[in-house]
Amino acid sequence: MTPSIEPLGDSAAIVAWRLLDDATAWQAVQSATEYFDRNRSDGVLAIAPAFKSLTVYYDCEKLTWSEAEKWILDSLRFVPITQQTPRRQLDIPVCYAPEFALDLTAVAAAHDLHPDEVIRLHANANYVVQMLGFSPGFPYLAGLPSQLHTPRRASPRIQVPAGSVAIGGGQTGIYSCTSPGGWHIIGRTPVQLFNLQRDSPCLLQTGDAIRFVPIDRQQFADYTERT
């Protein structure tokens, strides 16, 4: 399917597969991002994937819109159709204790479930990192069981601690930095998602497969102490 190509202001373009189903669109985005990024021409600054679209940033001193559009159209013809399998499988430890899970009871109540059942459902699903966004290294994860889909909080929290595992609509994610946030917090991981001391500061990459492994307070404390 041909994606739509739209200007994003005068120095970027959005290439979107909005009419495709989530999984197919996501595959198209991944393949195109990889190909575009490897074959950047002069004036094309960067490529960034989102759920069903990618953004091409270009230098509008060097390229006009028609030149940028032509580069995108030409590149699209060569994007290989590859069936990608998740690159890595990672286990993320999560402590669902009440002092971290500020909204666990609210989420449980919204679905008429016991909090333990929310934890069981959340920790037994398989997730895939669909994109990184919002803050450095924040993963948007697909795969949240439909029983846990919960509309965002009416008013966002001013400060959500880094490591908070949260539910927003049909997605789950992990706050990589302390920041404001409107998702429901149901636990916390002691793992640092964004750490500049590492060679690659973001722990997760788009395409990674994730499982949440419940840990207790003691394990959380031990992990934090070790790192």
């Binding site: 202001g9 759920f51 679209s53």
Partner: peptide, 10 residues
């Protein structure tokens, strides 16, 4: 809407 790219000036 699903999250999509934005730039300074949006």
């Amino acid at each position: 809407l699903l999250s999509e790219g934005v730039i300074p000036g949006t």
